[in-house]
Amino acid sequence: MKDPARELTELEQDALQEIMNIGFGSAAADLAEIINLHVILSVPHIAVLESHEVINFINQEIPDTTDMSMITQFFSGKLNGGSFLVFPHGEGRKLLKIFDGEMSLIGDNYDIDLLEKETLVEIGNIIIGACVGKIAEMLGDVVTYAPPRFFGQDQIHETLHSVVQSSDSFAILFKTVFDFEQYNVSGYLFLVSQYSIMPWLKQAIAEFLGPHA
């Protein structure tokens, strides 16, 4: 049986899609303007899924995580949940170019995997901050973040499972593909939230729609 309180109506789903489009657009513009990071964020895909469906969905999108790196960051506010930034392993290396000119500090005795990890954490959390922050802002909320965490390869599935399963049985999933133009790097951003935000979310969407609805 479907519980209407657990579902987004078509209108609400469209509105949320719109909010995400505007939010990601302005996040990308800010990233370019403020920190000179040019990112293309694809039109996000939104779905309200049960937890096992979330896992299936992510499995379908990324069938093989054995060669992936993931940054997770949890956020809390009225909008709360987790964000997962997933890159193919090795792609993060290209982002090291961002630190061009500062790499001399590091010297030659470094571990490239370690640097990739640190770069992904540093850059990833700015992207997450921009995207999540914008959506929250458009929904009239301000979120705070927990420190970012890095997971490599075989740790990814386990982490996703434990996160999705511990959150209450429903999840609202947002997926976008992003592209760093300058560095030829792309990956996925998933935001997973809990069913418990639904009443607030419905109301925030109604406020966004305002007199048009």
Partner: peptide
């Protein structure tokens, strides 16, 4: 005034994110 520090601070001022500046990358 290194760009990496300014990038992080500007990011935090605009997005309100929680950023890290790690020893591994920057000493």
């Amino acid at each position: 005034s290194r760009s990496s520090f300014l990038r992080i601070v500007k990011g935090v001022l605009s997005f309100g994110n929680y950023a890290s500046y790690s020893q591994k990358l920057h000493k």
